[in-house]
Design a protein around this nucleic acid. Structure first.
Lengths: 349, 349
DNA sequence: GAAAGAAGTGAAACCGATTTCATATCTGTT
DNA sequence: AACAGATATGAAATCGGTTTCACTTCTTTC
């Protein structure tokens, strides 16, 4: 009499083998494309169809030391750019049968190290790291990992990186502001400890100024946080001191806060004062005055990072690889001045 | 002479036990709070500190049948509401030592079923399901899962759910539009197969009309997709037919598209035509005319779902539980008419 | 002071797969 | 006809933990 499995219990390879009338080795071969006669293959297939059996990932992982899981460490999910990157990663990985383990550090850098360590011990096959700042501790933990690591949005020598041309984008936008306003743009940015959004974008601004024969001035450069409100405060302070003809902001959120401050100061954005941001956020496309920004290919960077990870997991290629993605300047009303727009504020993509 | 492990190799419990001079049973007890003398505990602690040893999750999971992983199935990450929910989930789960396995269905419902099945076999301890539509296949797969399931953003009898009062929010907003405009609001929504964002919000609109003694009219109710562009198109068509005094939109994205269409038709939003949406998106807070919307507690719903999941994993409480979260109406300029605002369009939260 | 219970211990069985190994049966080549 | 190589097979070892079990020692309790 056949043994009926209890509800809730899962069948194992031995039982399935018995059901199909083959050895468990044969069943294992069925799932791993080993030598197997067509007859056995068919018998196993039928048994699998009938029972819905699937091999235990835990047992498989124990023996093979591969979990088919990739860990992703990120500062926070509720940020448009991060969400887009993770979206890109998940699409590519899922396609290749990898699962994605998420670690949300909620903007606490100490947690980044903690999670990297969790991943090291919990047996993921690789880690994709959406870094913001990079401390010696980060370096130490990354060194101690014996699995592939890909860093997204930041460039670090000796690591596999997928990043954006933050400097180029910032420089191009600053040049645009210079041309359109005919005067020195001010700057509102974030901490330089964030080498991409902080340092590189500021450096782009500085280089553009210098190449125009202008020396950057500390009182025209302000440090803000990532939130709209902080951009608003810094812009307010800036407008109280000087009255810049234009403001380059390191992120769209800051720029949107800045535009609000300008409006409240009685200035017409896009005319009296020009504003540009970076990131091409959904918000910047629907503001009162459309925000000029640089589109960074976030989703693509996630996809590229995942592709790179897959290559590393297949042990393809030696050494580390760096992929730099470009940018695209989208000019909207916030920098029009008296010129014709390159692109108007439209809801079309 | 002590055996030096090769680089890249991980130590196992037997080796650590040897190093600490105890049995592997003792080491296991160390990590699972079993009977253990203080002396042995100290010896093991020292060995763990020295080597950085951590038990293999695969081996542990094989024996215990618990992975400390919770699967999350969601339609897409690059949506503000979804990202906020997942953010909430991850915060609570991480805090309790659970890891989060992400399945991004990229808006393809057939993938939802596929991923639920993957989770069933890959040994997660529980599944949180951010459902949009619910087919018989969904029901079948969910029935066949012998692990806890929590459904977020939708309410289904017989399942553990955390959802929003979509009907109430829609009704309240429609009533607000009725009061402010003094005329019949039109409606732009999404497919009723989505019982929360589609059916419930439409029902809220219909109920508000009926209670005001008005019969809903099919030609004033239009079906849109979730994208801004589709809201724009539907609003354009609506404005070509009638000229409604106000439009209630099932989502903020649709509403923002609709506002754009109104503007292009030469109508002043908030005066000639009132517009409201649902979701309190970041975009709606920065539009030319601030968008009146209902704040839904997305992050909280993620946290509640995770809490509920933890309870289920601890086998606490019998039967299923449903948690309904409220809403908060945020009135901005898009519905002002000639009234004083309840809340002005400010960048403050 | 005997019995009952709690605390502490390690050998061995066990979880469910993959991989090794020894062996057998087919091809196609010399 | 002998041989090499590819195909096919299943018993047994293995991965690294947890759990069971049999047993010892130390407290309480009556």
């Amino acid at each position: 009499m056949p043994c009926i499995r209890q509800k809730g219990a899962t069948m194992n390879i031995t039982e399935l083998a018995a059901l199909a009338g083959v050895s468990k080795t044969a069943v294992s071969r069925y799932f791993n494309n080993g030598y197997l006669s067509p007859e056995k293959r068919a018998a196993i297939e039928a048994a699998v169809q009938a029972t819905g059996y699937a091999p235990s990932e835990a047992a498989r992982g124990l023996r093979t030391r591969r979990t088919r899981q990739v860990g992703v460490v990120m500062p926070r999910l509720s940020s448009e750019s991060t969400a887009r990157v993770v979206d890109g990663i998940s699409l590519v990985l899922a396609d290749k049968g990898y699962r994605l383990l998420l670690a949300n550090t909620a903007n606490r850098p100490e947690r980044e190290v903690e999670y990297l360590d969790t991943f090291r011990t919990s047996g993921v096959d690789g880690v994709i790291f959406l870094a913001s700042i990079f401390t010696p501790e980060h370096r130490a933990v990354l060194k101690s990992m014996h699995i592939p690591v890909v860093i997204v949005a930041q460039q670090y020598e000796g690591y596999n990186c997928v990043y954006h041309d933050d400097l180029g984008a910032a420089k191009a936008l600053t040049e645009l502001l210079l041309r359109r306003s005919g005067s020195r743009p001010a700057y509102i940015g974030v901490t330089a400890r964030d080498r991409a959004a902080g340092w590189a974008r500021r450096e782009g601004y500085v280089q553009a100024l210098k190449e125009a024969g202008l020396a950057p001035r500390a009182d025209e450069m302000r440090l803000s946080g990532f939130h709209m409100e902080e951009g608003y405060e810094q812009a307010k302070a800036l407008l109280a001191d000087h009255r810049p003809g234009s403001i380059f902001c390191a992120t769209d959120s800051i720029a949107i806060g800045a535009m609000q401050a300008c409006r409240e100061a009685g200035l017409q954005v896009g005319k009296d004062v020009l504003v540009a941001g970076v990131g091409d956020s959904a918000m910047g496309r629907v503001t009162a005055v459309g925000l000029t920004s640089a589109h960074l290919h976030y989703k693509t960077s996630g996809q590229e990072a995942a592709q790179l990870m897959l290559k590393l997991l297949r042990r393809q290629g030696a050494g580390t690889r760096s992929i730099c993605l470009g940018y695209e300047i989208l000019e909207r009303e916030s920098t029009l001045g008296n010129m014709k727009p390159y692109e108007t504020n439209s809801i079309a993509p």
